[in-house]
Design a protein around this nucleic acid. Structure first.
Length: 438
RNA sequence: GCCGCGGUAGUAUAGCCCGGCUAUUAUGCGGGCCUGUCGAGCCCGUGACCCGGGUUCAAAUCCCGGCCGCGGCGCCA
């Protein structure tokens, strides 16, 4: 029972069951469905918790109730005062016999989208009419699974001594090159929206040892795929005195616990999504980049060593490995970001990894360079100007420990957990190349 | 940005290849019947061919351009 009586309601829809038989309650929500049988009228009301049936009998309900019931339209907001009746014929074994119905906001018709889910809508229509779309059962399931995910990630990381932090989202310089940034005007100066908390989280690890952040990042890329957004939520971890293998263990444990919890806590939601989650066991398989390339070559793929793996490559690799989740490790140093630590034994390759789900990169991480001279060299090797990173590099003179970390795309993880097709679907109000509203 | 496919009522669709008839069906909406529905049911009605140009006696259908969308690729630490 959700204990929260407010000005508008004494119970949530989900609370209405046979245990409340005979009790007078007040509930409020949206008209989800109206079934008029002539003598009986069933009005299904929905709120944030679920559905409840309000049964109006033409021979026994008051004239006022009957009059109001005639005016109801789908998705109108109503407040219903009534008596809970246990009845095996009702959907959940109990229903409400209304004493009074108030229309708090009458919805226009027709609706721009079918909330009940009888008629499917294109993703484009759904995003345009997103507020209606979010009222659908599937989308409530997506949001609830997301809530479990965030809760579990925080729990697991805190239990390992990580503290949650926030890094600045308006930054001074195009920090990492490569990705395109969104410029903003900051008190008359040019600034940018952060593409990643990378540099700041490293600085925080240098002070707080174990930190994580769940927050937005922005990239003004051409990327127009079901896996990219201009604005996305990134789950970032950074820890001092760890290397890439240490943080891989943390990552796989986070994902393992998330899958386990979603299975336990969101059974109904998974059912509503017609989705089931894979069985995984730890440790997850680890495939070195060089071995992945060999596997692809064995399949007849023309790929150069040193070339990055494309989605097509990952699809093929997934077929070969026959496992839903796996790590690819030790990428060539030159295709990773400048702060990635090369292997001491073989600097061509790096202490890096990607976590891959089927053909989708969920997360990527590495050991980081913690020595100033090495970092400057890495910047120079990539044609980046070390001077513009001076605010970052400076701190490497004052006790920068060895450290490692990873970043995971929240929406991509959600894709795996919900079985949806696009990160746009699991993001409430997605921002992509063409979409700025709603 | 490139390639492919598409754009038909509020929503989702059939028709397009092979031009011509009242543009199909579901859902929604309006009306009617019905006292236990739970995607209620049955009957009647309502509402649409993305925009511009071309071919043709005749265009939803064929051709050209545009706009928009979806998928793949590319781009993306």
């Amino acid at each position: 029972m959700i204990q929260m009586e407010t000005k508008y309601k004494t119970v949530m829809c989900r609370d209405v069951d046979k245990r409340l038989h005979g009790k007078t309650v007040v509930m409020a929500g949206w008209v989800h469905q109206i079934r008029d049988l002539g003598g009986k009228k069933f009005v299904v009301v929905r709120d944030g918790s679920g559905l409840v049936q309000v049964t109006i009998a033409k021979d026994s309900s008051s004239k006022d109730v009957l009059e109001i019931a005639e005016q109801l339209t789908l998705e109108s907001v109503v407040q219903v005062k009534g008596v809970v009746k246990e009845d095996p014929r009702a959907p959940r074994g109990a229903e409400i016999a209304p004493i009074e119905i108030k229309i708090l906001n009458l919805a226009k018709k027709p609706l721009p989208l079918d909330v009940s889910g009888k008629v499917p809508a294109d993703i484009d229509t759904r995003l345009r009419e997103r507020v209606m779309d979010l009222r659908r059962r599937e989308m409530r399931a997506v949001v609830k699974i997301g809530d479990t995910v965030l809760k579990v990630i925080r729990e697991v990381l805190r239990q390992k001594g990580f503290v949650e932090v926030f890094t600045p989202k308006i930054i001074a310089t195009a920090t990492e090159g490569g990705a395109n940034l969104f410029p903003v005007i900051y008190f008359g100066k040019e600034a940018f929206l952060a593409q990643s908390p990378q540099l700041y989280k490293e600085l925080l690890a240098a002070s707080l040892e174990r930190v994580f952040e769940i927050g937005p990042a922005w990239r003004a890329e051409e990327s127009d795929t079901p896996y990219h957004l201009a604005e996305f939520i990134s789950i970032d971890v950074e820890a001092a005195f760890m290397d890439y293998e240490d943080v891989m263990k943390i990552l796989e444990e986070v994902v393992y616990e998330v899958i386990k919890s979603v299975k336990q806590e969101n059974e109904d939601d998974l059912h509503a999504l017609n989705h089931s989650l894979p069985e995984i066991s730890l440790p997850l398989p680890r495939v070195r980049y060089i071995d992945a390339v060999k596997m692809l070559r064995d399949k007849g793929v023309e790929i150069e060593i040193g070339e990055d793996l494309s989605a097509t490559h990952l699809r093929l690799l997934n077929e070969t490995l026959n496992t839903p989740l796996y790590f690819i490790t030790e990428f060539p140093t030159k295709i990773r970001a400048f702060y990635t630590k090369p292997k001491d034994s073989d600097p061509i390759y790096s202490e890096s990894f990607d976590l891959v789900w089927k053909h989708l990169e969920l997360a990527s991480g590495s050991s980081r360079i913690h020595l100033k001279e090495q970092l400057i060299k890495a910047l120079n090797d990539r044609g980046l100007n070390a001077e513009s990173f001076s605010y970052f590099i400076k701190w490497f003179d004052y006790g920068m420990p060895p450290h490692a970390g990873w970043g995971m795309g929240y929406a991509r993880l959600m894709l795996m957990l919900t079985g949806r097709n696009s990160v746009k679907e699991v993001t409430l109000f997605p921002r992509d190349k063409k979409r700025l509203v709603p």
